[in-house]
Each structure stands twice: as C-alpha cells, then as structure tokens.
C-alpha cells in the first residue's frame, strides 16, 4: 500500500499498541505495510496480576509500546486488521488504543503547528482515559502498586530521563536524572479519582516530584478492565 502524506486537516490519531516483547518489530512492519509514515517502538515492563507469580517474584512481563500515527477515518479499519493479526481480544495478548491528535508538525518543513480542525471531538469524554505518570527512577513501582491496591489495573513502566527542575551535578558535570513513566488506561469515569489518588500519594502537586498527564482515548481494544477490579 502506498504511503500517503498525513495532514492534520484529515484528522489524525495516535495509535498506541502495547504487546509482549518480541512482537514490537512485527507491529512496526505491520504499520509500514499499512502505509504509516511515522511509527516508533519503546521498551517497557508490565506486571501480571497473579498472586502466585508475585510470591515467586516472577510477575514481570517485558513489553513493547508502539506509537503509530493513523488517519482518524481509518482508525477502526486499522484497529480491526491489527486485531486479526495480534488477537487483542484474548487475554494477555496486549492492548491497543487511539488518542486523537490535536496537531502535527514536521520539524524541517513546517513553520507552525497544523492544528487539527476535525479535532473538535478531542475534548469529548471517551469511555477510557490514558494516564501517563512520570516520576523519578525507582518510584514507578509505587505508582503501579498504588493503582493496584486501589483496585485499578497495573500499567506499563517505561524508562526515561528528564531534564527539568533542579540541576544534578556529578563530578562537575551537569547530568540528566533518570526517570520512569507509567502508562495506564483506566475507565473515564474513574480516571479523575485515580489521578487525584496518585497526585496525593506521590505529592505531584509539589515541584519536581513528577507530572501526571491525562489523555482522552477514543477507541480501545484488548482491555479487560472489568475483570481486574477484584485483583
């Protein structure tokens, strides 16, 4: 399939796919086949919600997070094709969701952001909300634990580094502190509760403690949220 230039006018979405490690390149290739220009893959770690495995400290799962830009009009079609190949409807086969893009820019070619005009729906509340919490290295596990104890599903932890706030000086060099990001997808109605909980427990309202971003999700696949309430 030929690749097409994606313009903000046509309405764009960011398709986020989380799969077990090893499948990331397959998803990337799939995106290429479907004509996506922009696709990137990150490594992350997830957790299995199993008491037995947790006792044995074997509850970690290596994950890959793939970001693909797709036209909103083809969102459903691409999600379905993706599902045919990776079977998100089965448990533990990964999840996929889309977030509407508000704008896009190519660094060398555009002088300004092309704001999406069809993106009026961007603030309408979907069924789900994606929560991205960025905290100092070592705190991500607490984020996941806070959310799990409160009855929410876990999340995917992604390694990162930051360049904010206080300067870190080691041996006369200014260094960038290591960070961790946790990506979680929760039901829209309960998102604010979880966000408030995290903010309170991790003191995110104080400077340099971390940030929390909420994004409205338009379509999801492979979420078994309701099953997880008890866990």
């Amino acid at each position: 399939m030929a690749r097409q230039e994606l313009t903000a006018e046509m309405g764009l979405s960011l398709l986020v796919v989380v799969v077990n490690r090893g499948k990331g390149s397959k998803v990337l290739n799939f995106a290429c086949e479907k004509g996506a220009n922009d696709a990137s893959c990150l490594f992350g770690t997830g957790t299995v919600n199993s008491r037995m495995l947790q006792m044995l400290e074997m509850n970690d799962v290596d994950k890959e997070v793939i970001l693909i830009v797709v036209p909103t009009a083809r969102e459903t079609e691409i999600l379905n094709q993706l599902n045919m190949k990776f079977h998100f409807e089965r448990k533990n086969h990964g999840i996929a969701f889309t977030v509407p893009l508000a704008g896009i820019m190519k660094m060398k070619r555009d002088t300004s952001v092309r704001w999406s005009h069809t993106g009026e729906s961007q603030h309408t509340q979907g069924d789900y909300v994606a929560l991205l919490t960025i905290v100092d290295k070592g705190k991500a596990a607490s984020v996941v634990q806070i959310s799990q104890t409160a009855g929410y599903f876990g999340g995917t932890i992604i390694r990162a580094r930051g360049s904010a706030g206080k300067l870190n000086v080691v041996l006369d060099m200014i260094v960038e502190p290591e960070k961790e990001a946790v990506l979680m997808v929760v039901e829209g109605a309960r998102a604010n509760h979880l966000a408030a909980l995290l903010k309170q427990q991790l003191h995110l309202d104080q400077p340099n403690r971390g940030i929390l971003i909420q994004m409205g999700v338009s379509q999801t696949m492979g979420l078994f949220q309701t099953d997880q309430h008890e866990g």
């Binding site: 090893g22 199993s50 495995l53 074997m58 509850n59 970690d60 799962v61």
Partner: peptide, 8 residues
C-alpha cells in the same frame, strides 16, 4: 507470558 516463561 511472564518473565520466567519467556526466559524458558
């Protein structure tokens, strides 16, 4: 697949 299974 948990970490042990993938290692195996």
């Amino acid at each position: 697949m948990n970490l042990f299974a993938s290692k195996l």
